[in-house]
Design a protein around this nucleic acid. Structure first.
Lengths: 147, 147
DNA sequence: GTGTCACTTCAAGCCGACTTGAGGTCAACC
DNA sequence: GGTTGACCTCAAGTCGGCTTGAAGTGACAC
């Protein structure tokens, strides 16, 4: 009664059934049983999937996420890990912010060619100097009205 | 004289030679000739590699980046594309910011289990409601001292 | 009882961005 | 003139996160 068919879980979570099977295989979720061949899931799986999605958004791999659940199924999240990930996100955010501002500038800049725009050239130089490499960032000041 | 050996380009750009060959194959860079078998590069390739790195950081694929150079080798960057990418980055930054704050909160939160922390639960609920899915974001207010 | 249809398993394929490995070439040094 | 070592080509492998395809099963409708 309270159990959900895989199709229902797929519908409610927005994930394709193939992904759910894959997650089960990886040990990220567990089916509560079978009705014939068909997997049945406890409704709690939805929260768990949400948690998994959250972890993925934060940049954790599925393997890392598996480790975040105790054998009891309870999330057992290491606070140190969270702090580290937060710091990592912080760095990423900083890089992306600089880049976004630079892109906006380049888009708005009146110089006929990007190579003639001082801001763009500064950005390239920063990139060239190794301050920007993918992943790494581009140090540049805030977006301003004129070059 | 002015030409650079692939090893030199690798050293200066920080990219392995295999990557440079791969980039050449993809049409991202061009060697200016050969000395025997060995590729020679114009020093300008370094700026170009910097530009490529920049594009990668901004989230462009190599295929997209190829299109950003005219047949003349001059960067021919579509300003509309830049604006669009800036907006995309903006969204990403927003999502990551919320997530970072939430992670920090969860790390600092005194609740014995994360599931008992209201902020964390709110985050999960947000995730569950589809506001957060990977890529998508987690809407949640700023980090605060207490739950 | 037979058709349909959503599920099942298992293996293989896909994507992007490279890396790795085998086997070959070439310039320079001793 | 032989060894070394850095380059070369081309094909295949890697990684993560799934998706796809073929072939099978089982519950329910008619």
């Amino acid at each position: 009664m309270t159990n959900l068919d895989i199709a229902e879980v797929a519908r409610r979570s927005g994930l394709p059934a193939s992904t759910l099977r894959y997650y089960e295989e990886k040990g990220l979720i567990a089916s509560s049983g079978r009705a014939g061949l068909r997997r049945q899931f406890d409704p709690g799986v939805l929260q768990r999937l949400a948690l998994i999605a959250l972890g993925r958004t934060a940049g954790f791999s599925l393997d890392e996420i598996v480790l975040m659940f105790g054998p009891d199924g309870q999330p057992r999240i290491d606070r140190t890990m969270l702090t580290a990930k937060a710091a990592e996100l912080d760095t990423t955010i900083g890089r992306l912010t600089v880049l976004r501002d630079s892109l906006r500038h380049a888009a708005a800049c009146p110089a006929p060619s990007h190579l003639e725009c001082p801001t763009f050239r500064r950005l390239i130089r920063a990139a060239e100097s190794g301050t920007v490499d993918p992943p790494p960032p581009a140090p540049l000041r805030k977006h301003r009205q004129n070059c």
